[in-house]
């Protein structure tokens, strides 16, 4: 393996980071296609939020659905079109249909789900229904 001489002399860890990155490409996580979209999950006492980066997805091509405790994000990314004689120098972005399901820690009610797509970032907030919130049990003295 060949490592280029690093130009950032001021950063002693630059070479190490670049080596680790190269090893990453051989790891098991790289042999399969990365899951799309990647999600971040946020949890609180009475709600769960799921955020995902969906650049290039129009809100009309995106579907967010909830079935019991499973949230599904699905949609389509369309490939950019260009003239026939156009030359592609780089094609790093991916296109096509995608679908991902996430299990929620509780059963969601339709009116407690809110989805918002802004600047290519989807944010879904699922509120916990009152009936499923933990209740405090009063302890009776014997």
């Amino acid at each position: 393996m060949y490592f280029p001489t690093y130009s950032h002399r001021s950063d002693p860890f630059a070479l190490m980071r670049s080596m680790l990155r190269d090893f990453d490409t051989f790891g098991p996580s790289r042999t399969r296609q990365p899951v799309f979209p990647a999600v971040n999950i946020w949890q609180g006492d009475d709600a769960v939020a799921i955020t995902a980066e969906l650049p290039g997805v129009d809100s009309s091509d995106l579907e967010v659905s909830v079935n019991d405790n499973v949230l599904t994000i699905s949609g389509r990314r369309t490939a950019p079109d260009a003239e026939d004689e156009a030359v592609w120098h780089r094609r790093e972005r991916t296109h096509g249909e995608f679908s991902r399901s996430i299990r929620l820690p509780f059963e969601a009610e339709d009116d407690k789900v809110e989805a918002r797509l802004q600047n290519g970032v989807l944010r879904v907030v699922v509120g916990m229904p009152e009936a499923q919130k933990p209740r405090r049990i009063a302890i009776k003295a014997a």
């Binding site: 290039g56 950019p80 030359v87 592609w88 790093e92 290519g120 970032v121």
Partner: peptide, 22 residues
């Protein structure tokens, strides 16, 4: 940012994925 770059007779077009940028 991931990029797609296409060149035509009139010039160059770049498409970059930058989610979350206003």
């Amino acid at each position: 940012p991931l990029a797609d770059i296409v060149e035509t007779g009139d010039g160059v077009q770049l498409m970059l994925e930058m989610p979350g940028v206003a």
